[in-house]
Amino acid sequence: MTETKARTITLHGRTVVGGKASATALVTTQTISGWGGINERDGSVIELHHELNGQSFAGKVLVFPGAKGSSGWSAYFHMCRLNGTAPAAMIFTRMTTKIALGAVVTRVPTVTDLDGDPFELIETGDLVEVDADTGKVTITKSRD
């Protein structure tokens, strides 16, 4: 992890799905359900009591622990890609078959196993550049 000018942070992790994307972050420390947990038409989280309830991850860098719930997880994120409502990139911390397959079929740059805690270092609204080909994540803080 390197920090420059206190406003840009660089992390390194493992490639799950390659590619590059840059967008503002949407961060949650709660796992997300696919089937029954999101609306694939607008990319919003619909699970009752979820801290992101009503918010859409479409076009955002989604920072979250990973997947939970039904085995329909990948199918729902797959549908998001077809509908143009998928996240721009994903950063997650807990590997499961649901998130791995889900990331693969969503086909967005995805990294895991970062060398710093993404929930400590990334806040919703930060600009995050994900270079999943090399595993590099560059965070530009939206506020000090």
């Binding site: 085995s71 329909g72 797959h78 078959t97 649901k98 397959l101 079929v105």
Partner: peptide
């Protein structure tokens, strides 16, 4: 493991699945 729509489709046609978990 908990598989998904895509991995079960692929497994049916190949008789393979990742050795993991």
């Amino acid at each position: 493991n908990v598989e998904g729509k895509e991995s079960t489709g692929a497994a049916g046609l190949t008789g393979r699945i990742p050795y993991w978990g």
